[in-house]
């Protein structure tokens, strides 16, 4: 382990790692394109699978938005770590003289960007195809989705990194993270539902957004603390 470094150092190292991941992604755009396309296809499937009466859509749309973002996010998560596995680069990353915390934060930041990108595609598409008024309160909705992406990435990064060498990782990743993520999903859905009400129930929305923040804080601290003991190799 390296000697003690100032806090700023960890954040800068984390950003370097995140930027490395994002640069790789920007060159091939493999994950963003496939994730976004997958998200879009789910939305199209939904728009056929569910009745398109606007009253019903208002009730169901929040859940659909979060489900499609989470499904697409899981695909991106698995793929982002597959890339590290294929060339055994996670081991190289672990051997670099930076604290594990920086590696965790770096991977987490990169995945947050990917999930955010999916939400950016899925939300307008749902608004368009299913006629959902998502953009009446864009700030609150964006904040809720951002907090959702942060929580998803924190938990997802810990377990995707631990599962890296496991043969059945593709099926075990959702098996492990979905039960843990259900509260996050429920808070996000409730917040979105409160925003879609006529008139929008902002008090309620902020209550659920606050819970999202509390959930993120608890699991970020836990993930930062546990990452080192889980990801040994």
């Amino acid at each position: 382990m390296p000697a003690e470094r100032p806090r700023q150092g960890v954040l800068r190292q984390a950003w370097r790692i995140a930027w490395k991941d994002l640069k790789v992604e920007l060159r091939s755009r493999e994950i963003v394109y496939t994730m976004a396309f997958f998200g879009a296809v789910i939305v199209v499937v939904y728009s056929f699978a569910f009745p398109s009466s606007s009253a019903l859509v208002r009730l169901g749309a929040p859940g659909l938005l979060w489900v499609s973002t989470m499904f697409a996010g899981t695909i991106g998560l698995g793929r982002a770590f597959d890339r590290e596995r294929e060339n055994d680069t996670l081991r190289a990353l672990m051997l670099t003289p930076v604290p594990r915390l920086a590696i965790f934060l770096g991977k987490g930041i990169a995945i947050t960007f990917l999930v955010g990108a999916v939400a950016l595609v899925v939300t307008p598409l749902m608004a368009l195809l299913m006629d959902v008024p998502f953009f009446d309160h864009p700030g609150e909705l964006a904040l809720a989705l951002l907090l959702g992406a942060v929580g998803f990435s924190a938990i997802g990064t810990v377990f995707a990194a631990t599962l890296l060498k496991v043969r059945s990782r593709d099926v075990l990743l959702p098996v492990i993270i979905y039960p843990i993520l259900i509260p996050l999903f429920a808070f996000g859905t409730e917040a979105t539902a409160a925003l879609l009400k006529v008139p929008a129930d902002l008090d309620n929305a902020w209550y659920w957004i606050g819970l999202l923040g509390a959930y993120d804080a608890a699991f970020l601290v836990l993930s930062m603390w546990i990452f080192e003991s889980l990801v040994i190799e």
Binding site: L163, P179, I180, A218, L222, S229
Partner: peptide, 25 residues
């Protein structure tokens, strides 16, 4: 049962995360 060699670590992590999640549920 299915995670092979790193099953103990993974499962321990899952148990800890699950416990922390309880108050949120």
């Amino acid at each position: 049962r299915y995670a092979g060699a790193s099953a103990d670590r993974l499962a321990a992590g899952l148990a800890v995360f699950g416990t922390v999640g309880l108050p949120f549920i």
